[in-house]
Design a protein around this nucleic acid. Structure first.
Lengths: 284, 284
DNA sequence: AAGTGGTCTAGACCACTTT
DNA sequence: AAGTGGTCTAGACCACTTC
């Protein structure tokens, strides 16, 4: 299926060409002529809201990314090629890809092409980790896995992962260290169905960030995440793991990560020791 | 001065018009033909790096914003008008404004125009405040000012504000409450030169966020900020202000805010009580 | 009806990378 | 030389807002 199908025929694709051959049916985007409901809160109609062409193209490309037609790290077809495939102008494809690049789903490289983003990259390692050393260059910590087991989802975990209480999950607990200094205690819950063969051994053997493993071995790519940060006191257990005293203040970060379609696929609860590190955030 | 002057004459502005009257000198962007230094680290040449036209336009518009030619809340000239002024196509102006909108310097409103962003807005109130209630809608807290005085900058403050140790600053301390519950203790340092007439009275009288006051009354507009977050224990003094026990864990957020030209103009140190609130962050 | 930003197209040329 | 993304232009039409 080549041409754009989502909303009626291709809107305005042949109507404005100065020397277009066939005057053709200018059916065009029917838009909200006629009924259409106002955008008032709690409105009645489901609000069809016809999206612009480039948004439709963006959705089609996203589908291809999700379906694995182009894999992480691979090059996607050139703009010209995509324009031909979807029967739109290169400029429209360009605008679609611009947004995908802004969303970090693809990366453009002049002269080379557009590539599917991957978590296997120097810059990607730190993409979701906001903890930075107070002094020196940011770098990725070493992991030591304490527990990896299958678990039935507790109610709160299930709710955040959009599952049912008691559904199968994979539970992971680890400590991360910077230059040998334990700094992060982290617990993770993953949907059991998506991460069947995940074992402590595979995690330990794997070099690089966990999201790279998830992407390559389990076909689940994290796109974005929501994080809620608090200050808490270290429990006796956590304090021991971090080699600090009981009652040391720690940053608590609860992260829910999402894959394509805004589907939550990871819950992460981290405790950060912030005596020589800080949680970095840029506001704009 | 109308036409684009920064880098040589207008690059490529008349060369590609299909039916251009005068074949004209296609002098065009001289670019890095000839010498030009490689972008290697620590290179010799000052790296002229010719920027694309739309970036030059963006810079020109930014200058007009900074100089106050168009004030916060006001509408800037239409794209067509700017295109005429700078002697470029509307598409180039559009791309420049697209980036300014992405940077939150202006806001586009279809059918109405493009407006200079302002901190006097419902959405702007929460723009830099990441603390959200665990339950219920986010809203802006009430302020109670404890101290407002002029102070010589301590060394650490001076360094962060790009001043000299001992330079004049305005120091502010306040407590902010959500629905009457004290939740934030905050200290601020501002460059004394920029905030001459700032008094406790003016701060107390002013309704709305402080950044609005800074923008309207002192002509200093915060563009972006860097924030470093840590977990700490409440001192006896802070605990009293927040009506909590000594040693309660608190979020410590150190924020440096910047105005045009990446000039630091505010240091803010906040302590957040996170028992019924959390610091919200979206990662992507 | 007029003015604004938003979308879409078509074509030219530039800069960068690889062959 | 060929292919890729990046810039720039010109013109058409659409959607929204205001007069």
């Amino acid at each position: 299926m080549n041409p754009v199908t989502p909303n009626q025929s291709s809107p305005g694709s042949s109507a404005n060409a100065p020397a277009a051959p066939s005057a053709g049916a200018t059916a065009n985007n029917p838009s909200h002529s006629g009924s259409a409901a106002p955008a008032s809160a709690g409105g009645a109609a489901p609000a069809p809201t016809f999206s612009p062409l480039y948004q439709q193209i963006k959705a089609l490309i996203t589908q291809s990314l999700q379906s694995g037609e182009w894999k992480p790290g691979e090059m996607i077809p050139s703009e010209v090629e995509l324009a031909n495939r979807y029967k739109v102008s290169q400029g429209t494809v360009r605008k679609a890809i611009d947004e995908l690049a802004a969303d970090n789903l693809v990366m453009r490289r002049q002269g080379k092409g557009t590539f599917v983003s991957t978590h296997h990259e120097a810059r990607a390692h730190i993409r979701f980790l906001r903890l930075r050393p107070d002094e020196g260059q940011p770098h990725y910590p070493e992991s030591r896995f304490l527990e990896v087991k299958r678990l039935r989802a507790p109610a709160d975990v299930a709710r955040l992962l959009d599952m049912k209480s008691g559904d199968a999950t994979v539970y992971i607990k680890r400590v991360q260290s910077f230059d040998g200094v334990p700094t992060i205690v982290e617990e993770l819950w993953l949907p059991g169905l998506l991460f069947k063969g995940l074992t402590a051994e595979r995690l330990s053997e794997y070099k690089g960030p966990m999201y790279g493993l998830f992407e390559s071995e389990f076909g689940t790519r994290m796109i974005r995440a929501d994080e809620k940060v608090r200050a808490v006191l270290a429990s006796a257990e956590d304090a021991a793991l971090l080699h600090v005293e009981d009652g040391t203040p720690l940053l608590s970060a609860e992260r829910v990560s999402f894959t394509y379609g805004d589907k939550p696929v990871e819950l992460r609860r981290g405790l950060y020791l912030t005596s020589r590190h800080h949680y970095q955030n840029d506001l704009n």
